[in-house]
Simulated assay, not measured.
Amino acid sequence: MKIYSCRFLFSIATVSSILFSSNIVPYSPLAIPGAHAQKSYSGTELRQWLEATGNKMVSVVNSNKSAKEKKEQFLTILNQDVDVDTIAKFCLGRFWRIATPEQQKEYVQLFHQVLINSITDRLGEYKGVSFDIGKVSTVEGGRFSIETILHRPKQPNVSIQWVISTESGSPRVVDIIGENASLSVTQRGDYTSFIARHGNNVSALIDALKRQISKHP
């Protein structure tokens, strides 16, 4: 079983500023309990926020700090600027509603861990990266799409689009489109298919994520 979020979301970490365009795959992520006043952000403000977030990520990637230090710094950035909980819930699809509260909590915690492990495992591949920010567009659901180009040493440029929500009261990444695929939609298909093949048992996915984490160095 793969976790595509690692591959695409890593680009979030490396490109460092980044998100979506007009050909975004539409979807309706599950809402997080607790409404917040939603501030109105201009395109300029969103670009500035994404640039600052991206620069934080790139500075970690390009630093000479230890793998452990980089992992800790990336975890802070992800928790602050990426709505990992919403992504995790959406990726579980219809099975989120049948999971027990205990399973929901454990799954989200595991999703965080698998994600950060996969991102930090590949940091060395992206040293020397930089990025450019393109246009900002409004997309379905009041979210925003920001186009970016990731420049990697001795490799082709990568076009990445980031979907940003301000529902929490501040901008946060809720999806990424890379290689013509949506992070959330692709990962949801993988997870829900896995659960369906295992008797519609959410515990099967939880156990698989635990095994994946246990094998991580």
Results as ranks from 00 to 15, higher is better:
6 C>M: 11
123 L>N: 05
102 E>T: 12
190 D>K: 09
71 K>V: 04
9 L>W: 05
152 R>D: 03
14 T>V: 15
14 T>R: 13
98 I>W: 02
70 K>D: 08
9 L>K: 02
1 M>E: 10
163 V>K: 04
83 D>G: 06
37 A>F: 15
159 S>D: 12
100 T>V: 08
78 L>K: 02
44 T>W: 05
78 L>S: 03
210 K>Y: 05
125 E>S: 13
118 S>R: 01
158 V>K: 11
126 Y>V: 03
2 K>E: 13
92 L>A: 02
155 Q>V: 07
135 K>F: 04
86 T>S: 15
25 V>S: 13
23 N>Q: 12
54 G>V: 09
139 V>L: 15
109 Q>R: 14
92 L>E: 02
125 E>R: 04
89 K>F: 00
155 Q>Y: 12
15 V>Y: 06
83 D>M: 09
161 Q>W: 06
207 D>H: 14
74 F>T: 01
29 P>H: 07
207 D>C: 06
173 V>R: 00
82 V>N: 02
68 K>N: 13
79 N>M: 10
82 V>H: 01
42 S>G: 11
64 N>F: 08
49 W>N: 10
8 F>G: 01
126 Y>S: 08
60 V>C: 03
152 R>K: 14
141 G>V: 00
182 S>Q: 06
37 A>N: 12
178 G>A: 14
158 V>C: 04
201 N>V: 10
121 D>K: 02
73 Q>N: 11
51 E>H: 05
194 F>N: 04
137 S>E: 14
185 V>C: 10
194 F>T: 08
14 T>Y: 15
3 I>N: 13
212 Q>D: 12
121 D>G: 01
107 Y>T: 07
84 V>I: 15
166 T>N: 13
217 P>N: 09
56 K>N: 14
125 E>L: 04
148 T>L: 11
13 A>V: 15
128 G>P: 03
74 F>P: 00
202 V>S: 00
35 A>E: 15
53 T>D: 14
14 T>K: 11
114 V>S: 13
79 N>K: 08
188 R>N: 13
17 S>L: 07
66 S>W: 08
60 V>N: 00
84 V>W: 05
177 I>D: 09
197 R>G: 15
161 Q>R: 07
2 K>L: 14
49 W>E: 10
214 S>I: 02
16 S>K: 09
103 Q>G: 09
48 Q>V: 01
25 V>L: 05
65 K>W: 07
138 T>D: 15
39 K>A: 14
